[in-house]
């Protein structure tokens, strides 16, 4: 179903995405936003203008021509930030606030967990951890962590 979309998407010299609809109206600084970033990241992506108004809803990225898809994926990549915790090195204490040293898919980092309520269960095996600055860290499957990490995490569940 890869027919030509009824809009144009380019990136300008200022690094902003520019959207041009079928009537030729231009919007600069367009951003793609996933509708279901956790439960279904690859379907349902909205392009919104700089005022947060929806311009177009893309059901499935794969339906787009590859150059548009690249632009959108690039932009998503530079906007989305939900490091996935792969390993817990150590936690400073089992009571909050505590500093966690972790390995994520985006490198090693340490952050401060403000309260136990910031560790939230998403499904039976996945967790979302919010640090003191409001950044979300994801644990996709706590059973796939190594033994030590599981043990550390277990203190907070």
């Amino acid at each position: 179903m890869s027919h030509a979309p009824n809009f144009q998407l380019t990136r300008n010299a200022f690094g902003r995405l520019v959207f041009r609809d079928q009537w030729g109206a231009m919007q600069e600084g367009v951003v793609p936003i996933r509708g279901f970033p956790i439960t279904n990241p690859n379907r349902g992506i909205a392009l919104v203008d700089c005022h947060g108004h929806e311009l177009i809803w893309i059901d499935c990225l794969a339906d787009l021509p590859s150059d548009y898809r690249m632009l959108i994926e690039d932009e998503l990549l530079s906007r989305e930030f939900m490091p996935e915790i792969k390993r817990l090195y150590n936690v400073s204490s089992f009571t909050t606030p505590s500093t966690w040293k972790v390995v994520t898919d985006r490198g090693e980092v340490s952050f401060i967990l403000k309260g136990e309520e910031d560790v939230r269960r998403l499904t039976s095996s996945s967790f979302m951890i919010t640090d003191s600055h409001g950044i979300h860290f994801l644990i996709r499957d706590h059973l796939s962590l190594d033994r030590n990490s599981r043990k550390l995490l277990d203190h907070f569940l």
């Binding site: 690094g15 600055h133 950044i135």
Partner: peptide, 25 residues
């Protein structure tokens, strides 16, 4: 910034020269 991640951008009148990303701390 968006969702806890900031973007610092340097422009001249024609284009973006550079940008840096940081956590909002």
């Amino acid at each position: 910034d968006y969702a806890g991640i900031g973007c610092l951008e340097l422009f001249d009148t024609h284009s973006r020269l550079a940008h840096w990303r940081y956590r909002l701390g």
